[in-house]
Write a protein that binds this DNA or RNA. Structure first.
Lengths: 230, 230
DNA sequence: GATCACTTGTGAAATAATTCACATAAAAAG
DNA sequence: CTTTTTATGTGAATTATTTCACAAGTGATC
């Protein structure tokens, strides 16, 4: 499946793998932009992302920009084009559910605000834990999720609860009107087609096991293989 | 690319997406096994992993097991078959490079030992930080990477250093003989074909941006899309 | 300005992955 | 014992993604 545009504004469809790569490309453009680099080629982008230059060009071609071919891409221009296409410049108000070790790390993670995610609330089911927390961001008991989500106009949630709590947490968030979820728990959440909520699962243990499986292949003198969890 | 078996023991090749899903399937089998469940169907596995049952069956078929069709999968048997195929039962000695906030969380993460990853060393470039750390696992200065990797027979590394340090860190680890890397830094590491080292990149910011891009599609009443970062 | 060494953009071809469809097997129900 | 329901396993068809090949544009050099 892909990024299927239904209105007539800009007709085509971006395949999912291309969309993911465009997000990576954006990060590299941002880096180059900060370094003051004015231009970058598909070859360089390919090296930085671990992708063939053909593929990079194809990905960028889905944006249907009008450029003069010949020299490389103009860094600030392309960055702005990707950014405005996917609205990377608008601030997304977010919350973190589950203020354990990982939740706490994410709460102070300065790259979230840098990427226009403003964490405005935390939630935890343990009252004891909330009382001992010292954070800049207010932390509420889990039963206040519906109230605070609405009051604070929160549209994204980061789930960092233990696996067995993930499904109920997600249902609760979706009922409260959340529009996007990033799930760090060990339980895979599959998006309910009817809800229209976008879910991205990050499965760290799964990725570790995937690495172990790849290494097994190498152990046996099988062909090792380029791979990325992204 | 896939999991290309070159010896003649068991001829076929497992596509990369199937391999990733098999790792997830293993986690679910483990969960069911602990709950005492004896059987599971492709439909149930599909629901738990967010995949169509067809796909689950196809994935499992790559293992070329001999089973009688008709009833579901035998949980402990299938778990053992996947586990021994990919050697999930052998202990992998691992280290963490970069003992910042995330590195520290991963160091005490009890699900790593549960999944047969034994963290036996940490490395950090800041001597000050090392002196103030109180951990059960020894932490060494980064310049001792080659020595300790060999002495402790470490085969996997978790990179949790800042983006700009990731490439040199990886090169250093690979020179020291590491066989697998899981990279949490913001810089994508692409596996050097000649080295034979397996690398899995976990790009949390990229995944967040990917979610934002999907949400943009929904904002516009475009078709939202099932997706997973795994 | 002409030539050379670059570059991008993109239909078309090739490859890869998913889904289908159905033969086959097991267990449950009648 | 026979029928019905519910499974798996897997070639074949379909769909999705990547790669190729090349036309066309750019800027540097002579």
């Amino acid at each position: 499946m892909g990024f299927n545009l239904k209105n007539k504004t800009a007709g085509k469809m971006i395949p999912d793998p291309s969309l993911k790569r465009l997000c990576r490309i954006y990060a590299i453009l941002d880096e180059y932009d900060k370094m003051g680099e004015k231009a970058i080629s598909s070859r360089e982008l390919g090296e930085k992302t671990g992708t063939a230059p053909h593929t990079i060009r194809k990905d960028i071609s889905y944006l249907h920009r009008d450029t003069r071919a010949g020299s490389g891409y103009n860094v600030p221009v392309l960055k702005e084009e990707i950014g405005s296409r996917f609205r990377f410049h608008i601030e997304r108000r977010a919350c973190i559910v589950g203020i354990g070790k990982l939740g706490k790390v994410l709460m102070d993670y300065d790259r979230l605000p840098y990427n226009n995610m403003k964490i405005v609330a935390g939630f935890d089911s343990s009252i004891n834990r909330i009382e001992t927390l010292r954070t800049d961001i207010p932390v509420y008991p889990a039963n206040e999720i519906p109230l605070i989500i609405k009051k604070e106009k929160i549209e994204m949630a980061i789930i960092a609860v233990p696996g067995p709590r993930a499904v109920e947490t997600a249902e609760n968030l979706i009922r409260a009107g959340i529009k996007g979820i990033i799930n760090f728990s060990s339980t895979v959440l599959n998006p309910d087609m009817k809800s229209g909520v976008n879910i991205v699962n990050i499965d760290i243990i799964g990725d570790l096991r995937y690495l172990a499986a790849l290494m097994t292949a190498s152990d046996d003198a099988l062909t090792p293989v380029s791979s990325s969890a992204f």
